[in-house]
Computed example of a mutant assay.
Amino acid sequence: MTGICLGNVHWKNSNPSLAQRLELMLDSSGYRVRFLTIAPDFIFNSMGLSVAFLLITEWNEDTITAALDRAGKIRRTFRNCYAIYSVSSNEANESFLDAYFRSKTFEIAMPPFIPVNDGQMALERMLNLADVHAECKRQGTVSQVDNEREDLVCSNDAFVVAISSIHGLTPHDANTLQQGIGSIEEIMAASKEDILDNTDLSAEKADAVVKFFHDPPFYMNPVPPSTRN
């Protein structure tokens, strides 16, 4: 796939070895690259379609909040955007997810955050995603994919499946939460007391809902097969 890649010159200066690898990858893929002062770390344009990327390859508790705020601002500017972050351990991933769910910046999965093992994999994933968008544009399937995604996200069936995946909750409980609390975003923001006051869910189920969205040890641990709904 051919196209143009605009890179953030600050990212290049902060990641010289990764920048050299990326330039080689882009050259072999047919992309021309220029480094400028831009808001995202990268903007790929191919077939008239732009895709923005934020690469979070170096982060800690002191810098992650600023990175998440930046990702939220980029999402408001670019329809197609991704945040790719590298984590080297389960503990690092839990720390990142905890900061993500505590952030007030995002809608659900907007922009999509994609974990990878290291900076090299981040570059590869970014290039793959840019190529996928360009190929969809070439085949004229972008509108179709967008419509199907919107229908899925907005459908009641998708809502019920998402909420009833919380351990201990049934499809009836999901419908009860939708009627009493509202959207997934509103359920995420609801406290245990809000859920008890506005639904007929038990205290145990209300606690499970709150923990699912805000307690990393709870939502990161798999449910034993013998206790699944």
Score class of each variant (00 low, 15 high):
residue 187 I to T: 08
residue 137 K to E: 14
residue 176 T to R: 06
residue 198 N to K: 15
residue 115 P to D: 01
residue 91 E to Y: 05
residue 131 D to V: 04
residue 178 Q to Y: 14
residue 194 D to C: 12
residue 173 D to W: 03
residue 120 Q to D: 11
residue 175 N to S: 02
residue 176 T to Y: 00
residue 108 I to L: 07
residue 174 A to G: 00
residue 142 V to N: 08
residue 176 T to W: 02
residue 165 S to K: 10
residue 102 R to G: 07
residue 148 E to C: 07
residue 115 P to E: 01
residue 141 T to K: 15
residue 187 I to Y: 15
residue 178 Q to V: 00
residue 202 S to V: 02
residue 129 L to H: 05
residue 89 S to F: 09
residue 89 S to E: 05
residue 167 H to S: 12
residue 153 V to E: 10
residue 100 Y to T: 02
residue 181 I to D: 06
residue 162 A to F: 14
residue 135 E to I: 12
residue 173 D to K: 04
residue 181 I to G: 12
residue 185 E to N: 07
residue 146 D to S: 10
residue 157 D to L: 13
residue 164 S to Y: 06
residue 128 N to F: 10
residue 192 K to R: 15
residue 182 G to C: 13
residue 192 K to I: 11
residue 123 L to K: 07
residue 154 C to P: 01
residue 177 L to M: 04
residue 126 M to P: 13
residue 143 S to V: 08
residue 140 G to W: 10
residue 116 V to W: 07
residue 108 I to A: 05
residue 112 P to N: 06
residue 162 A to L: 12
residue 181 I to Q: 10
residue 114 I to E: 03
residue 85 Y to K: 02
residue 130 A to G: 11
residue 139 Q to L: 15
residue 198 N to P: 03
residue 173 D to I: 01
residue 119 G to P: 08
residue 198 N to Q: 13
residue 188 M to W: 05
residue 186 E to T: 02
residue 189 A to F: 13
residue 149 R to F: 02
residue 202 S to P: 07
residue 149 R to Q: 10
residue 166 I to K: 00
residue 130 A to N: 04
residue 185 E to V: 03
residue 97 L to H: 06
residue 140 G to S: 13
residue 119 G to M: 07
residue 127 L to E: 13
residue 164 S to I: 07
residue 186 E to Q: 15
residue 191 S to C: 01
residue 164 S to D: 11
residue 144 Q to W: 12
residue 116 V to I: 09
residue 106 F to N: 01
residue 133 H to K: 02
residue 175 N to P: 02
residue 94 E to V: 03
residue 175 N to G: 01
residue 106 F to I: 00
residue 199 T to M: 12
residue 96 F to N: 09
residue 163 I to Q: 09
residue 129 L to T: 14
residue 200 D to A: 11
residue 149 R to M: 08
residue 170 T to Y: 07
residue 173 D to V: 00
residue 124 E to R: 13
residue 146 D to P: 00
residue 165 S to R: 13
residue 94 E to N: 05
residue 136 C to P: 02
residue 180 G to M: 03
residue 99 A to G: 03
residue 114 I to F: 01
residue 182 G to F: 10
residue 90 N to I: 11
residue 104 K to F: 02
residue 126 M to D: 10
residue 194 D to Q: 09
residue 179 Q to I: 03
residue 171 P to I: 03
residue 94 E to H: 02
residue 117 N to P: 00
residue 171 P to R: 08
residue 89 S to I: 10
residue 86 S to Y: 09
residue 175 N to K: 08
residue 116 V to P: 05
residue 89 S to D: 04
residue 176 T to Q: 06
residue 114 I to L: 12
residue 135 E to W: 10
residue 195 I to Y: 14
residue 199 T to H: 14
residue 198 N to F: 09
residue 150 E to L: 11
residue 158 A to M: 13
